[in-house]
């Protein structure tokens, strides 16, 4: 009897893994197609789309598309720009949004509930609706640099960083997490004479590893993968363009499909590396926030 039960359990497990494996394969198809296609000439790539050959590295395989992609667009520059903009934005965002969350949760100031509600209400405003007003603002902002005061932030890195540092979702993540921290710790530190800044730096932040990882992951993916419209309208010079704008270099009258796949493969590398490095935190963050990346 126990043997039958054990065999049934084994069969159920096998069936479950089989289904999961099939689902995984389906989800892997686009990635496999992208990578495999990046090694094929356009004629073969298009011809293969009507068969399973589209997912197999067969036929005329070469690195020609990669070579041509590097000639067509300054890929290294675009990737540097995106990685740099993402890293700076995420670092500043975590610092400032965690301070905001700390203030909303632990500091006692009048109107904080109303202000927090207003901040959270901005979550429902799509960026497209504020893009033009924001463009008009940043095109007239001053900046003090080595050459003195300059007017207008267009064609700079800062115009791609500063507007994205503070966002309601990141603040919300910190507020929710801080609410669950034990109050006794904070009160004990205050009784011992710690300033609020010391409480933030020495008590709260060291206990906030999970939310820091969550905020960093979600923000990084947004900054790296979704920066298209804004740089399109505030950056006119090639030297400051991020990778997503670079996609347009491959959509000519005759689309360079193979080169496009090579470009997509290349720009996916940092995301995949980041994912592999942060895999555990990534899964935990989705589980804890219910937000899909």
């Amino acid at each position: 009897m126990a043997e039958i039960s054990s065999r049934n359990r084994g069969l159920r497990l096998f069936a479950r893994y089989l289904v999961l494996a099939l689902v995984a394969v389906v989800f892997m198809f686009p990635l496999v197609f992208m990578v495999v296609s990046s090694f094929k000439p356009d004629g073969q790539l298009l011809a293969d789309t009507s068969s399973f050959r589209a997912f197999l590295p067969v036929g005329d395989i070469s690195l020609d598309n990669y070579r041509a992609a590097f000639e067509r667009a300054p890929i290294g520059q675009f990737m540097f720009n995106s990685v740099m903009i993402t890293m700076v934005t995420v670092t500043l965002s975590i610092g400032i949004c965690s301070l905001a969350g700390f203030s909303f949760v632990f500091l006692d100031w009048s109107g904080r509930g109303v202000i927090l509600s207003i901040v959270l209400a901005t979550l429902i405003i799509p960026f497209e609706t504020i893009a033009v007003p924001l463009l008009l603002v940043v095109s007239r902002l001053p900046w003090v640099g080595l050459d003195g005061v300059e007017w207008g932030w267009l064609n700079t890195y800062r115009v791609q960083i500063v507007p994205w540092i503070v966002d309601a979702l990141t603040i919300f993540l910190f507020v929710q997490y801080f609410k669950d921290l034990p109050r006794e710790l904070i009160e004990a530190a205050r009784v011992e004479g710690a300033s609020w800044l010391q409480v933030y730096a020495r008590i709260v932040m060291p206990l906030s590893g999970p939310v820091l990882a969550t905020a960093a992951i979600l923000k990084s993916l947004k900054m790296y993968n979704e920066q298209y419209l804004w740089p399109l309208i505030v950056v006119q010079d090639e030297a400051h363009r991020p990778i997503m704008v670079g996609l347009g270099y491959f959509f000519q009258l005759n689309v360079a499909w193979g080169e496009l796949m090579a470009y997509l493969t290349l720009i996916s590398v940092p995301v995949l590396a980041f994912y592999l490095f942060m895999q555990r935190a990534f899964i935990a963050s989705i589980a804890s926030t219910g937000v899909k990346g």
């Binding site: 463009l135 008009l136 399109l232 670079g246 347009g248």
Partner: peptide
Amino acid sequence: VESFPQESYNDSVTAAALAGN
């Protein structure tokens, strides 16, 4: 010369016109 991707060129020009650029 500054070159733009064709698919987004018109949007870039419209934005630049708004910004006086």
